[in-house]
Write a protein that binds this DNA or RNA. Structure first.
Ligand SMILES: [Mn+2]
Ligand SMILES: [Mn+2]
Ligand SMILES: [Zn+2]
Ligand SMILES: [Zn+2]
Lengths: 143, 143
DNA sequence: ATCAGGAATTAGAATAATTCCAAATTTTCA
DNA sequence: TGAAAATTTGGAATTATTCTAATTCCTGAT
C-alpha cells in the first residue's frame, strides 16, 4: 500500500504477492498499475482498453472483478458522479472529487488541514460513518 | 416553492399552475405530492407505485419525465448512493444524506450552523461550484 | 366555443453499465 | 505430483434509465 503510491509508473511485477490481504494476481497487478500510471479517474472500460495494451488477453469481466477486489481491499477508491459509470482512483489519501464541467476532467480535492467533516454535520450521538463520498461539479479555477 | 414544503400532505390540486418556471401538469403535481407526503427518499419506481394509487393511468415513463423536470427546476433533489437507483428528496434546504446500513433508511443531515463546506476544501481560486452531493453510510445513532 | 400548435403523456423498444454463469485455466499446498 | 481452491474468461442476463413515435392534452388566439 505504501510502496504503491510511491512511484509514478510502477512495474506490475514489483508489487508484493499480497497487499491488504488480497492476492496480487497478474491481472490485478496490471489493473492496479494502469490506475497508478495515469491518475485521471478512468472508467472500468477505460482501464480495460489501457490494460489490454500490455496484456492483450485480459477480459472486461476480469477488469470488473479486479476493480471490485481492489476497492473492497481498500487499494483503490470507486468514484461516482450521479449516474455516470463509476470511475476509479488510486489516491488513498482523504480527498473528494470535483468534475470540471467544461473539460469533463475530474480533480482530486484535499481538505484544508485541521478540519474533519464530521465537525460540520449534524449527526446524532453514536453515529458511525463507514463510507463517505463527496462529489462536486462546476468550473474549476486555474492550475 | 415556499407553499410546497409547508404542509405535510398537500393536495396536488392546490399547487400553483407554474412553479420555478415549470408548468405544473396533473402528473407533475401528483409526483411532487407523492414525494412531499412520505419523505423517505423513494426511487422512481417507488414513486410510480405510490402515485398509481391516486392516478391509476400514470406511466413509469411519465414518472421519470416528471422527476427529471422537477429536479431540473430545483423543486426536488436527486440523491445517489454509489450505483443504486436514484432516489428523490423534496427537502430543499441545504443537507446531505446518510444511509443506515442496518435499516437501509436514508436520513437528511443538516450542517451545523455557521459552517460552509467550501471553507474546508482545498479548491483553487475562482472555482465555481454548481452542484454538490455528500453521501454517507454507516450506523445511525439514536433518534 | 373552436381550432391549431405546442407540450406532455404513454407503451413499449432500446441502451448500456454491471453482474452473473459455467467452463477453462491457473495457483496453492499437502 | 495431484487434488482443491481461486481466478479468469466469454458470453448471456439483468435492470435502471432513456429513447421513440404515436396519442392526448393544453393553451391562447380567433
Ligand atoms: Mn448529484
Ligand atoms: Mn461510494
Ligand atoms: Zn481521486
Ligand atoms: Zn434529503
Amino acid at each position: 500500500m505504501i510502496v504503491l503510491a510511491q512511484t509514478k509508473n510502477p512495474n506490475p511485477e514489483d508489487f508484493p504477492s499480497e497487499i491488504n490481504g488480497l492476492r496480487m494476481t497478474r491481472q490485478r497487478r496490471e489493473v492496479l498499475a494502469t490506475l497508478l500510471a495515469e491518475r485521471d479517474h478512468p472508467t472500468a472500460n477505460d482501464v480495460f482498453l489501457r490494460a489490454q495494451k500490455r496484456m492483450p488477453t485480459i477480459s472486461l469481466a476480469t477488469v470488473y472483478n479486479c476493480l471490485e477486489a481492489l476497492v473492497s481491499h481498500n487499494l483503490v477508491k470507486q468514484v461516482n458522479f450521479d449516474r455516470d459509470s463509476s470511475r476509479y482512483c488510486p489516491n488513498l489519501s482523504d480527498h473528494c472529487h470535483f468534475q470540471d464541467e467544461s473539460s469533463g476532467k475530474i480533480h482530486d480535492i484535499g481538505f484544508k488541514d485541521g478540519v474533519n467533516l464530521t465537525d460540520l454535520l449534524d449527526l446524532p450521538e453514536g453515529t458511525q460513518i463507514n463510507h463517505l463520498e463527496i462529489s462536486l461539479k462546476g468550473t474549476f479555477g486555474k492550475s
